[in-house]
Design a protein around this nucleic acid. Structure first.
Length: 201
DNA sequence: CGTTGGATTGGCT
DNA sequence: GCCAATCCAACGC
């Protein structure tokens, strides 16, 4: 498939609710410490806005969410449930706390390395979930704040953006507040979308 | 300082 | 459907 060029800074300097659907079909590239390359096509993403009760940024800037408030186009990685990492693309203007959670991807390059990290050969489960994807791609604390526009270890390519007609808008997974906001975007009928368990509340 | 619960996942009933 | 795993940021005293 077509990979295209890198997404420019301006791509990210928009509201998360605009960036999230526009990320579907784009390609995340990862260069592992050993030099091996991994690639995945984004099929599911969620927007987290400034002053959004479900967002980590809701209660203001802290050491944990600091990257969210920085310049757009960087990676915000957080640790949760004592064992998982999730990654976000920082959006909006510097000073705002908004980002897009990367929830699922179709593996394109590096199946063997992903399978080894994930402990499964099932291609459909390598990157189908935010913590599964970071595990498959070797994303953790060291990648928090990584610049996707200029960095070489993790970055985004244009890929083939999903047509609007193929994009489905639903409610976000695992959030128990602001559950009325339909800010989860997926490619319709794509087999690599996460199982996405329903949230309570 | 102590408590709480989390943008999840995998395993079991 | 239910629950444990396992850390730690955020918040209240």
């Amino acid at each position: 498939m077509r990979l295209g060029r890198r997404l420019p800074r301006a791509f990210f300097e928009r509201p998360a609710t605009e960036v999230a659907p526009d990320l579907l079909g784009r390609v995340l590239l990862r260069r592992l410490p050993g030099g091996e390359r991994l690639a995945g096509r984004i099929v599911e993403a969620e927007a987290y806005m400034d002053r959004d009760p479900a967002s980590h940024s809701f209660r203001g800037r802290t050491p944990r969410n600091d990257v969210m408030f920085g310049p757009p186009g960087r990676l915000y990685v957080y640790f949760t449930y004592g064992m998982h990492f999730c990654m976000n693309v920082v959006t909006g203007r510097e000073g705002e706390g908004s980002a897009v959670l990367l929830r699922a991807a179709e593996p394109l390059v590096g199946f063997t390395a992903m399978a080894a990290r994930r402990g499964t050969d099932d291609v459909r489960r390598l990157c189908a979930g935010p913590a599964r994807w970071t595990q498959a791609f070797g994303i953790g604390r060291p990648q928090n704040g990584a610049d996707l526009v200029r960095g070489r270890d993790v970055y985004l390519l244009e890929g083939e953006p999903a047509p609007r007609s193929r994009i489905v808008r639903t409610t976000r997974v695992g959030v128990n507040v602001a559950i009325d906001r339909p800010w989860r975007f997926v490619i319709r009928d794509d087999p690599f979308v996460s199982p996405g368990r329903p949230a309570g509340g």
